[in-house]
């Protein structure tokens, strides 16, 4: 499974989910509406930089604080294809994976990236490439790749629970 995107960079550390998606909009359940509040407390103009092929490049402990899944939901719906960070807060990290939004850690790749950089991600090989420069990351375990392919935790779970019905073959072909 490999992905490519154009970098949008949030370099500061400890960016919390309250500034990524303020509490005033937590009652929104429509994903299209959520996208209109993404980054609102941080820098709403970042929204204008997102396209269908965005690689979001972030600092350390990104996504700290609240467990609100609105953040990765709005990110995925805004065209963010994957995240590369120095490190991630754990609940946010799990929320991304659970929605099928790949997240990888590479401080070196973050250092090398600038806004507009072309970033590609090879999950099996464990390589993230920034403007042609490859950086090694921990290979993403097969289990996580299955989750990404299934589209997240819930579709993966449904398929598991429905295994006898063979709706989706888990661990099957990728790409």
């Amino acid at each position: 499974m490999s992905l490519e995107g154009r970098a949008v960079v949030i370099r500061q550390d400890d960016v919390d989910t309250d500034v990524l998606y303020p509490g005033a909009y937590l009652n929104v359940t429509d994903v299209a509406q959520m996208t209109q509040h993404l980054f609102e407390g941080l820098d709403p103009s970042l929204r204008d930089q997102l396209g269908g092929d965005t690689a979001l490049v972030v600092g350390a402990n990104f996504g700290a604080g609240s467990s609100r899944e609105h953040v990765p939901q709005a990110m995925a719906a805004s065209g963010i294809r994957f995240l590369v960070g120095r490190s991630f807060a754990r609940i946010f990290y799990r929320n991304c994976i659970n929605l099928g939004l790949p997240v990888v850690m590479s401080p070196e790749a973050v250092e090398a990236a600038s806004p507009g950089s072309t970033i590609s991600l090879d999950l099996e090989a464990g390589i993230v490439t920034v403007d042609g420069r490859p950086f090694r990351i921990n290979p993403v375990p097969a289990f996580l790749r299955e989750l990404f392919v299934a589209g997240g935790l819930v579709p993966w779970l449904r398929a598991r629970l429905d295994r006898s019905a063979t709706v989706v073959e888990i661990g099957g072909s990728e790409e």
Partner: peptide, 14 residues
Amino acid sequence: FGVGTSEVEHVLAA
């Protein structure tokens, strides 16, 4: 520990 909404659904179901 805290979980996100996908995990809420997972725990409700399983």
